[in-house]
């Protein structure tokens, strides 16, 4: 665009900052939290925020900040696993689909099918079949992510495969798989990274929604959506209990979106925004 001296990737920085704000305490919770997140202390229930309890305590006397830290880590790990699953299945399928012939059509059909099953429907069926569980949640969110990775990998591969250096590699006798790994993948790495970041935002929203409905990870593992659902009736006497977990989800999503947009601008300015 014809903008005079635009600020250098402000959204990249804003996104990184916001994500750090949310994810650093979350990562820290793996080794340290202000209070044990599950420690019940009924004598000190529903305390207002103070220096001791930064976000107060919940109806069971548990430290809200500690629980949110752990919940963010749990939600974040589920989302990361789901994206990894989407990428691990989607990228090879997409590269395969770049091959000429009926393979491409079949791969695109699978992509259509995946898109037709939003995470909530898959999760609902899986939970009904297996009960709640982390695996069901990861699969449900991951499956919906497969098509996007497939399309991008296939599109990227198709555009790269026509270039001269591929022909050169072929002439040099490199095998098909080797070409895909050595030449195609590095060339679409940037766009895949952008996709993963943006998909993480949608995954965070899905995860929160699933655990809000009770279809996500099972208790007593704290998760952001379920903390909100559990304390929803507290909206009068302790609104912070309802506001805080939602705000963390929103920050997580905002951070991922900003980071994704920023990465895209930086890595490949010619890319049109996907969403």
């Amino acid at each position: 665009m014809r903008r005079p001296a635009p600020p250098r990737h402000p959204s990249l920085w804003a996104g990184t900052l916001i994500l750090a704000l949310v994810l650093v305490p979350a990562a820290l919770s793996a080794v340290w939290t202000p209070f044990p997140p599950g420690a019940i202390d009924i004598a000190h229930r529903l305390l207002s925020p103070s220096l001791r309890h930064v976000l107060g305590t919940d109806p069971f006397g548990r430290d809200v900040a500690s629980r949110l830290m752990v919940a963010t880590l749990n939600s974040g790990l589920v989302c990361a696993a789901a994206i990894a699953l989407g990428g691990l299945v989607g990228i090879p399928l997409g590269l395969l689909g770049a091959a000429p012939g009926w393979g491409g059509a079949l791969v695109m059909r699978i992509a259509d099918l995946g898109l037709a099953f939003p995470p909530l429907l898959t999760a609902a069926m899986l939970v009904a079949a297996e009960g709640t569980g982390i695996a069901a949640e990861i699969v449900a969110i991951g499956a919906f992510n497969v098509p996007a990775f497939m399309r991008i990998a296939r599109g990227g591969a198709l555009s790269v495969l026509h270039r001269d250096f591929i022909a050169a590699a072929r002439v040099a006798g490199r095998g098909r798989v080797a070409i895909l790994l050595e030449h195609v993948l590095p060339n679409i790495g940037a766009i895949l990274l952008v996709q993963a970041t943006l998909a993480l935002a949608i995954a965070a929203l899905s995860e929160a929604g699933l655990s809000y409905l009770g279809l996500g990870m099972p208790p007593p593992l704290p998760s952001l959506g379920r903390i909100l659902a559990d304390d929803q009736a507290r909206i009068f006497d302790a609104p912070l209990l309802v506001i805080a977990p939602g705000a963390v989800v929103a920050l997580l999503v905002l951070g991922c979106n900003l980071l994704g947009d920023g990465l895209r601008d930086r890595l490949d300015p010619t890319l049109a925004p996907v969403r």
Binding site: G38, I40, F60, G131, P218, P219
Partner: peptide, 22 residues
Amino acid sequence: TGELVAAYLGQVGLDAELVPVE
């Protein structure tokens, strides 16, 4: 109640696991 019971059993050294079922 289940969540609280599990916490109390934890205090006497038992490892109580909650299994939500439909």
